[in-house]
Structures are given as structure tokens and as C-alpha cells.
Computed example of a mutant assay.
Amino acid sequence: MRFLAALFAFAAVLLPGAVAAQIVDPTTAGRAEPASPTDPQNILLLDLSTGGRVTIWLRPDVAPKTVERIKTLARQHFYDGLTFHRVIDGFMAQGGDPKGDGTGGSTLPNLPSEYNYLPHVRGAVSAARADDPNSANSQFFIVFQPRFQLDKKYTVFGRVIDGMQYVDAIERGEPPANPSRIVHAYVLADNPPAYQPAPPPAAALPATPALLPTGPAVAAPKPAPTTRAPARRTAPARRRSAR
């Protein structure tokens, strides 16, 4: 028996690769190979009004449908000019809503959930949704500080690998008084231009004095009756990230 044990030990020394090949990590078994963080096809660039460019490493290995949607909308310039409408200090910044109030999305169908093993750590980028797990569409949020209670409840599809300081500078509020916005969104493979700061807002022109009438006074027409839609008893569902 001692001879056999020594023989196996000797074989392990001579053939470490063969022995290691038989050892399988159960936590990674069956996982797809992640996209390279230098692959331009899976790098999303967000030029923010806070002063710089944010680089996001996309993960089609764990959320292929969500990544494809984000890239499609970026290439359609859907995100250009949209605001971060819900920003909670110490939690996350949420954007991607054309309505700017958390109830909007793109004209494309909603996405199925793609919950995965990626955690909601600082810099994680995750798909916002309403109560329905399969209601993600265009909105997303970027995590300021870890929120592991969101893991496997929201679809993490990427992570900020450069420019997190510009995410930290996003104006806080629900909604913010002066919301920060996405100036442009690009896929790196499309050879985007270098970052250019957003132009400053145009100064308001002085009001033009109203001209006094010179003809005979004419009675103003009576306004038409206003048609009002029935008041909603419940607020519309918000696409949101959980608290």
C-alpha cells in the first residue's frame, strides 16, 4: 500500500497538468467564456454631461439578449440626450428613459430576465424593470455602492471599467433638480469620435415687448371647452431598480 501511495505521488509530480485537468471547479462549470474586456464589440462608451467618458465592459456570456438590446439602442442613438432621472446617493444612478420619469422605454419588445451570477458591486450596470421580471426594455442603472440583495433579481449585463468618477458626479435626486444626461452612447467597434464636452446651454434671450394694437378693439374669442382624460386612480408602473 505504501508503494502504491508513493507511486501515485510520484505520478502527480511528473504529470501535474494531467492531474489538474481532472480537477473541476464546480462554481465555474458550464459557464460561457466571458468576452474580453478589450473586445471593441463588447465595450459601451457613455459620454456624460458630468465631464467625461465612461467605459463599460459588456457581458454577453451571461446576458446576451440584454447586451444586444443595449448595443442596438446605442447604435440607433436612442440614448443620446437622455437624463438620469432617478439617482440615489450611496445606491445607484438610473437612466435610459425617453420620458424621463421612469415609465418609458423603446419601441422594441420587453426583454426576458437573464439573472446570473454577477454581483451588484460598485460599477455594476444592471437592467431596470417594473414588477414583472420580464419587463426590462431600455432603462438601466449603475451601482454606486454594493447592493448584493439585488443579485439574481435584476440582470447585471456589464461593469464600468473606466470613468467611474463621472458616474459619481451624476446629479442626485428623484428626479434631480438639474439632471445629468448621456450626451452620446457608442459601441467602441463603431470607431466613435474622441470625447467632446457638451456645449453649454444657450443664454435666454430678452423677451420682446408686446406691440400695442392700433386698430379698433376686438373682443377675444371664447376658449373652446377643454376635454380632460379621466384621472388615473393608480400611478403608472415605474421601470425601476429596487431599493
Rank of each mutant, 00 (worst) to 15 (best):
F157W: 09
F84Y: 11
F3E: 15
F157C: 00
P206V: 04
D190P: 05
R59F: 02
V121S: 15
I70N: 01
A136L: 02
F3D: 14
K152A: 15
T208V: 14
P16D: 04
V156M: 11
I170W: 05
T227N: 13
Y117V: 09
A93T: 00
R172M: 12
A219P: 11
P112Q: 11
I70C: 03
R147M: 15
F157Q: 08
R243T: 10
N191E: 12
A29M: 11
K153E: 12
T214Y: 10
T155S: 06
A235C: 00
S49T: 14
A74P: 07
F91G: 03
F78M: 01
A128Q: 10
A224V: 08
P216I: 08
S106I: 05
D101M: 10
P221D: 12
T214Q: 15
G215F: 06
N191H: 10
F141P: 02
A74D: 01
Y154S: 07
I56T: 04
I161H: 01
A177W: 06
K71Y: 05
K222H: 12
A130H: 08
V183Y: 07
G96K: 12
F84G: 06
A18M: 13
R122F: 03
P206T: 03
D89P: 06
F148Q: 13
D80Y: 04
V87H: 03
Q145L: 09
N116H: 08
L211E: 15
G100V: 02
V160S: 03
K152E: 14
F141W: 05
Q76W: 01
N134Q: 11
P179N: 11
F10H: 12
A20F: 14
I182A: 05
I170Y: 00
Q41F: 08
A237Y: 06
P236S: 06
L111N: 01
A207C: 11
R243L: 13
T66K: 02
P119C: 04
V24H: 09
Q41C: 11
P179E: 06
N134D: 15
F141A: 06
V167D: 03
R53I: 05
G102P: 03
Q94W: 02
F144D: 03
I170N: 00
R232A: 14
P37S: 06
M164K: 07
A198H: 05
F144Q: 08
T107V: 12
P209A: 00
F144H: 15
R31C: 09
A130N: 08
K65C: 03
R69D: 02
F10P: 00
P216S: 15
R181L: 12
V13P: 07
Q149Y: 13
D25S: 09
A32I: 02
D131M: 11
G158L: 09
L46F: 12
Y195F: 14
P16I: 02
A237W: 10
L73W: 09
F3T: 14
F84N: 05
V62K: 04
L46E: 00
G95N: 07
S180T: 02
A229S: 12
A11I: 11
A202T: 14
D39K: 03
A203P: 00
L14H: 09
L82I: 05
L118F: 10
A6V: 10
Q22S: 14
V167E: 01
A198P: 04
R238D: 10
T66R: 04
P109N: 03
K99R: 15
A5R: 13
T38F: 08
Q76F: 01
